[in-house]
């Protein structure tokens, strides 16, 4: 499989990337690790005229302690998230889950920013950042702005990023309390059929998000509210799929996904409560 022809340019800085994007508009696509975009291009499901390679922007690969939160450069690879001591201590759910993305080769190339900007509802990391209540930093021609994760995922493969914006940083609060990530799939390296991220606050409440239960990564608000209202874990989990319209594919019908969501949310809450 060979992608259709395109032009290629390598951005020397984030500013340059942004200016290239604003020059070329919809025709241009950012290329980071390339593990979401290149497979689509090989199948000719994506045919951008210009690729702006930001893969070399070392300035955007870091995990930093910023006091009340951890800042992660958008071009930090999954592999680096797995091996970041800082992340393992301060936000273990993110480090752990990065180790479940794809396979080792994918983790050597794929980046957290690429994963979030692609906005795939079946992806692991978007749901985790969502459960953590993270904030995304985007740079555009008009400067930098922050977008709460809860407002970032807009529709199927659609995010709040403008075509001329570059995702530069992901900020997540330190989350040393209970957590769990439940990934259910048929082969270890596949996308989740359903996934659940849970981050406990230690006071009986938890933030819970869902993978592959709708067009975007989702917060399981019905579960969160039930917990806040004092419901038991099992009771709260039974609301996992309330109001959701999960997709149907070769691996799962919507009914099965709803069922899985309740089971996995329960398991996630149980594990988060005991970790």
């Amino acid at each position: 499989m060979i992608p259709a022809a395109f032009d290629y340019t390598r951005a020397g800085s984030a500013e340059e990337a942004v200016s290239l994007l604003s020059q070329h508009g919809d025709e241009a696509k950012l290329l980071a690790g390339g593990h979401s975009l290149l497979p689509l291009m090989k199948l000719r499901l994506a045919t951008p005229a210009l690729l702006v390679d930001v893969g070399r922007l070392g300035e955007l690969s870091y995990v930093r302690d910023e006091g009340d939160h951890i800042a992660i450069g958008a071009l930090t690879r999954h592999h680096d998230l797995v091996h970041s001591d800082l992340l393992r201590q301060q936000v273990p759910i993110l480090s752990h889950t990065a180790g479940l993305v794809g396979d080792p080769q994918v983790r050597h190339r794929g980046t957290i920013g690429g994963s979030l900007a692609h906005g795939d509802p079946a992806s692991d990391l978007p749901a985790v950042v969502l459960a953590l209540g993270g904030t995304l930093v985007a740079r555009g021609p008009r400067g930098e702005r922050t977008i709460p994760a809860t407002e970032f995922f807009r529709g199927f493969l659609e995010t709040a990023l403008a075509p001329d914006e570059l995702l530069t940083e992901i900020r997540v609060p330190k989350a040393g309390g209970g957590w769990s990530y439940q990934k259910f799939n048929r082969r270890a390296f596949d996308w989740a059929i359903v996934g659940v991220a849970a981050v406990a606050d230690g006071g009986g409440r938890a933030a819970v998000s869902l993978v592959n239960m709708g067009p975007t990564p989702l917060r399981a608000t019905a579960v969160e509210e039930a917990l806040a209202g004092g419901a038991s874990v099992a009771e709260a989990a039974s609301h996992a799929a309330d109001g959701l319209d999960p997709p149907s594919d070769l691996n799962a019908s919507p009914e099965y996904r709803r069922h899985l969501a309740t089971v996995l949310v329960r398991r996630a809450l149980e594990e988060a409560g005991t970790r």
């Binding site: 082969r187 270890a188 596949d190």
Partner: peptide, 11 residues
């Protein structure tokens, strides 16, 4: 091979 599930060593 993403949809036709040939197993890997992990399975």
């Amino acid at each position: 091979l993403a949809d036709y599930l040939v197993p890997a060593a992990s399975e």
